[in-house]
Amino acid sequence: MSLSMTLHHRTSLRQTVQQSFTMAYRGLLKFRRNPEQLFDVTLQPTLFTLMFTYIFGGAISGDAEHYLPIIIPGVLMQTVITASVATGVQLREDMDKGVFDRFRTLPIARIAPLAGALMADTVRYTIATLVTFVVGYAMGYRPQGGLGDVALAGLLVIVCAFAISWIFAFFGVIARTATSVQGISMLILFPLTFLSNAFVPVNTMPKWLQWFANANPLSHLISAVRELTNSGQIGDEFAISLFAAAVIILLFAPLAVRMYMRKA
């Protein structure tokens, strides 16, 4: 009996990328089978944009129309980050299924099942982004930056949401149940989104809170989006947001994969 198989000790980068895309394809097929998975990214932005604009608009900017340039980027960020929590929750549910046992016995890169699931969810973030801008437009939001800048702002939000979803993927991997992922994530999500410049100007907050809100990476992301949509500027905030996204991925992607492997 001759040695007739060439065996490999690890997957190449090209194989890893291809496997991740296959897993993303699997995620997309699941959306098609369960369109209700897209409810949160269509209903939430519609509801929140309407609600926040008419509740806070008068108090903060005098009227709803002047509040739109402030609130649209805020709601956009909040919706997309909430959607990235769902990524972690769904990953946990998925991992409890038998099919993940098969993924674990296949000679594939350990990161592929995680990366694929997260990549597929960028479709959800894209839908959320589109819905938010369209609802805003219908309410009279006319961004001063052109369509190109709005698209670039949307892209920035989607990239950052992908990065942040690695945090929730990490919770998804370490938690025992999907409900607990939801619980932990919401505990982090609420302070982070509300203690920012998303809904109100930071200078109306107490000093100590201003310090936190200004340091909050989400404030930087929102500022970057406002700069782009309202005046077509790409500045420091844009760079800071991308840098923060890169740091999050570099920190949480290896952590999530390591915990995933340990559970295997």
Binding site: K97, G98, V99, R102
Partner: peptide
């Protein structure tokens, strides 16, 4: 091939 089907139910 396990006791529990290791295939994707939704697909």
């Amino acid at each position: 091939t396990g006791q529990y089907a290791s295939v994707d139910e939704t697909l």
